[in-house]
Design a binder for these strands. Structure first.
Lengths: 102, 102
DNA sequence: CCCGTGTGCTACGTATAATGTAGCGATCGC
DNA sequence: GCGATCGCTACATTATACGTAGCACACGGG
């Protein structure tokens, strides 16, 4: 559950690899306001296929960012919630960025 | 140069789309400590093809996150640097995360 | 004048990853 | 038993990225 292969010397490279694949960031974002079922997540990420959704969730679970619990479904772990805070900062930035550049 | 199509109601969705494609996060990360030439960037992102690198840089330039200047090469704009700060927070988180989970 | 080196960038064939649709086994309420 | 939902998978199609080679341009000697 918590074992992972270290393919990069700096952890940032690993997390960049994980977050830099399609849908991963989006999934975390959708998970930010409470637990979601697989199918709810699928509905929120409008064009994601169940195959990739499952792949991403499996990866995020492997790395201890997300867990699956019998009632409620998928949810962020404490580490995942910290990551969610960073996404909130990203959201605030995006708002300013959108205002400036648009 | 600064015009962009709004395909999502919330800016976070757009930035999630942009950052959630392969290499984009990594490119921004490599740009964080100073301007880089196209080829230097290519060397730092070890397996990126020039095709995608150019696509990503073009997209980031379109959105005013990165600029290309005659001496020095590619560099972050002021908005890009703000985004870089968020990546630094991500890096700090990654360090803790790696320490806990590994 | 030509040559080597560096720049940003493109073409094109091949490999990989994501999509869309259908459906599985399990669980729950009726 | 029936229908609705759950997480998840199979498989054929399509989009995306890769890898290599090379273009056009600029600069700085010899």
């Amino acid at each position: 559950m918590s074992r992972k292969s270290v393919r990069s010397s700096h952890p940032i490279n690993e997390i960049l690899d994980i977050l830099g694949t399609r849908w991963t960031l989006r999934i975390l974002w959708e998970l930010r306001d409470g637990p979601q079922s697989f199918r709810a997540l699928q509905a929120r990420c409008e064009r994601v296929s169940p195959t990739v959704l499952n792949q991403r969730l499996a990866l995020l679970r492997e790395h201890g960012i997300v867990t699956l619990e019998s009632p409620g479904g998928y949810r962020l772990t404490s580490q995942g919630r910290e990551l969610g805070e960073i996404l909130m900062a990203l959201s605030r930035w995006a708002k300013r960025w959108s205002g400036d550049a648009d």
